[in-house]
Write a protein that binds this DNA or RNA. Structure first.
Lengths: 144, 144
DNA sequence: TCTAATTCGGATAATTTTATCCTATTTAAT
DNA sequence: ATTAAATAGGATAAAATTATCCGAATTAGA
């Protein structure tokens, strides 16, 4: 469904949100260990999310990654997915046709539109805060 | 969402079903041209579908690919996807956790379960006949 | 029997995705 | 200033996916 990079990106952002919520800044090493991802690869993904202003990166000795507390609840899953995988997955044709719409639908169009719409809605309405809260309360997990 | 191989596989199977429905057997060349896919790569995918008994392949001079008419309505999209991409996409965790269930959910689990379930249901209930019929009636398209 | 049309399948190549390595740069603290 | 800890980013490598090439095998029909 999502690329590995996107999976890492989502998990990393949730973890950063959780820690930011608690007033803590987190290092790459910490993130990679917490979400069980390869460090250098995760670094590239965080750079991308930082350039896209989903997260903030702070260089230097006490540097790391964080998100302003008051932005956490307004950041949607779709922004993360978009920054890494683009929007093809929740806006594009299921069979990869360049143009697929009501006037020129692929064979799956009518069947797929509900799935895609539900995915789009889920990604565009789910915010970081609710995801981080699940981790905080020990109800959900980022690894294993 | 689906791999390129899977997209080709679905389109190819729909086209084979359409022609089989009309009592015609189709060649690889015909298929590749009709769904706009690379011939040799499509051949590998058709081999896989053939080994999985989704389609039949006939060797030799007047050979090609076909599906028994009376099986067309009973073949589900999920069988094609399964043969090529496996079932991870509609059964696995959205964040790639090896174990993700109600007792040990990933942060997205509760949000993702609806999407995944709708995708699973769509794939498991949509049959080849309805997809081929759309093409036959000129309402849907396999390319452009 | 021969030929032509076809699928099969092994080998290889190209491209994309995933992953690693290493140096430069930044910054807080001593 | 110096040092240590951290991110940035270019170069490269490994693995997976997508794509191509070509000879072997099969089969209908002349």
């Amino acid at each position: 469904m999502f690329s590995k990079a996107c999976e890492y990106g989502i998990k990393a952002t949730i973890y950063i949100a959780l820690k930011s919520y608690q007033g803590q800044r987190v290092s790459l090493k910490d993130i990679a260990s917490e979400i069980n991802s390869p460090e250098a690869f995760t670094a590239k993904i965080l750079q991308k999310l930082s350039r896209d202003h989903v997260i903030n990166s702070i260089k230097g000795a006490t540097g790391g990654f964080e998100i302003e507390k008051d932005r956490i609840s307004s950041i949607k899953l779709s922004q993360i997915v978009n920054a890494i995988d683009g929007d093809e997955i929740y806006k594009g044709c299921g069979l990869g046709l360049a143009t697929c719409n009501e006037h020129h639908p692929c064979p799956m169009h009518g069947k797929f539109i509900g799935v895609r719409e539900e995915l789009r809605y889920m990604l565009e309405t789910t915010n970081l805060e609710e995801l981080a809260l699940g981790i905080k309360s020990g109800l959900t997990y980022l690894k294993v």
